[in-house]
Amino acid sequence: MIGQLIANGIVYGCIIALGAIGLSLAYRIMNFANFAHGDFLTLGAYLTLFFAATLNLGFPAACILAIPVTAAFAVALDIGIWKPMRSIGASRTAIMILSIGVSIAIRNALIIFFRPDALRFPLPVMESMNLGGILLTSFQISVVLIALASMLVVHALLSRTVLGKSMRALADNPDLARITGINVDRVIRYTWMVSMGLAALAGIMFGLITHINPNMGWSIILPMFAAAILGGIGNAYGAMAGGLIIGLAQEISTAILPAEYKIAVSFAIMIAVLFFRPNGLLGGG
């Protein structure tokens, strides 16, 4: 019983972690909490559905296409909205309010194009496999494997590449980064691409193990923020750990609490972290 909950928690935690990494990266580089992040998960899932079901591309090809298209949309948004806001020197609070507007617009545009009903990817229903008493579908196992692989890629990107170095430089001191010749707008756009690409991937995986609806991303914005804060907001590794902890805590809580309240568990963890360790378990921020 508890083994099953832990397994479910790891699957769900991987999705939260991928979402939270993107949220945390964007927070560190752009310096604001992006409330539209959840809706990019939704966008990624719907684009995949569109490519797979309407254009008949096959599910893997649809995923591979949906991720860069979501990232491209994020870049377009940077050119159209975030960059002009940076240029006029808008405050963080103004940008956060604006991100709410973006979130409302994306979510409802998806409702217009795809109707508000819950949908599924055009994939066969998977039988659960019994792994020593724990039931898992091959979807759930692939979610964990893909998430772990993506985390390794993010780690390599941040620690081994020039882009990763520029991102850290920009986060630590924007002015210094600028005068050392870092093209700030370019680094910011790459950050959006990484952040929103991860969001799209998280959205696809969330749709794979549950279903797709226009509210799906918004509905897990709270656990994603809780994970980011738990790990120290701005810290990508903290977000990974935070995501897994939140996922496990939410699922294991169902052993003692009604399942409807599991989202409240992540809220309680977030409040506790803010009271006792506001920089998160791994610091950062």
Binding site: G101, N108, I111
Partner: peptide, 19 residues
């Protein structure tokens, strides 16, 4: 769809006001 269209406009108003 029409209530969603109204919400899209609401989102755009918020974006436009802030910009």
């Amino acid at each position: 769809a029409s209530s969603a269209a109204r919400m899209v406009i609401i989102g755009v108003i918020l974006i436009g006001l802030m910009m």
